[in-house]
């Protein structure tokens, strides 16, 4: 248990005018661990994701990231080019809307290969090979490697975004409602895919979701947020089966049983 954290945050606070988005939030993530952040909309979970990933600044607090050479970086003190390079290599970000990440005017294979090129790969044949391999891993027919993303369904676009994100073998991936807005059958397939890829590649994930079933399926640990505060945190099954805080009890008891 002496293993060091991949990402640690202490005392994160952020206000939008008078609205508290983050109130003194601490978070830790260890390598290979999936941490779910749950809460209703407006609870601050997406803001937390944006702050942890350096896409947004907090008013107070610090976020540390440990690189593969075990050097610590203050995410918010990193020069912009270094942070961008990090987002292209050791980190990934999966958006709820895949169009926010994909380039719709570039072929499916190009979308996957582009991230490899950005990470410094130059061998065209190998890039194309990797793109085809990743399309297969996310269950997209490799024959569609040259097709434009606009010909893809919503579920396929989300899988393409995951292929594009994982092709550089990041150790840490931020996911914002990755299954939001998809049909349940498509959602099930995507969840199974994320679950198996994350386990096989030993990726650490910060997963923002409002869906407790998604958190239960994917996450080792869970953080429950309300009005910018973390009200409860712990093992996923413990928090969901034996919730201690009034707000968590409300969330858990509000879920419809299918």
């Amino acid at each position: 248990m002496t293993e060091e954290t991949l990402l640690s945050a202490r005392g994160l606070s952020l206000h939008f005018g008078k609205v508290p988005a983050l109130v003194n939030v601490d978070a830790d993530l260890w390598p290979g661990e999936v941490l779910a952040v749950v809460g209703e909309s407006g609870s601050g979970k997406t803001t937390l994701l944006n702050v942890l990933s350096g896409r947004m600044r907090a008013d107070a607090g610090v976020t540390w990231y440990r690189d593969p050479q075990s050097r610590l970086h203050d995410v918010h003190a990193m020069p912009a080019p270094a942070l961008r390079a990090l987002h292209r290599s050791d980190w990934g970000f999966v958006h709820q809307n895949p169009r926010d990440n994909l380039r719709m005017s570039v072929s499916a294979g190009g979308n996957v290969g582009e991230r490899l090129m950005a990470a410094g790969n130059r061998h065209y044949g190998r890039i194309r090979e990797a793109a085809i391999d990743w399309l297969a891993q996310v269950e997209i027919d490799p024959a569609r490697v040259d097709d434009m993303p606009r010909t893809f369904s919503g579920g396929m676009l989300q899988r393409l975004q995951i292929a594009r994100t994982l092709v550089t073998h990041p150790r840490l991936v931020f996911m914002d409602e990755p299954t939001g807005g998809l049909d349940v059958s498509v959602q099930a397939r995507l969840l199974d895919l994320i679950r198996s890829l994350v386990a096989r590649l030993n990726i650490a994930v910060v997963l923002v979701t409002h869906d407790l079933a998604v958190a239960r399926l994917l996450a080792h640990r869970i953080m429950v947020m309300q009005r910018g505060e973390v009200v409860e945190t712990g093992l996923t099954d413990q928090v969901l089966d034996d919730p201690q805080h009034a707000y968590t009890q409300l969330l858990v008891s509000s879920v419809l049983q299918a």
Partner: peptide
């Protein structure tokens, strides 16, 4: 124990068979 220790204890030492299978879609 902290959550990560519990995860390790469950992986190696402590098994649990619940009354009902929690099925994972598609698996």
């Amino acid at each position: 124990a902290p959550p990560r220790t519990v995860v390790q204890v469950r992986a190696k030492t402590l098994g649990y068979v619940s009354q009902f299978l929690r099925v994972v879609p598609r698996v």
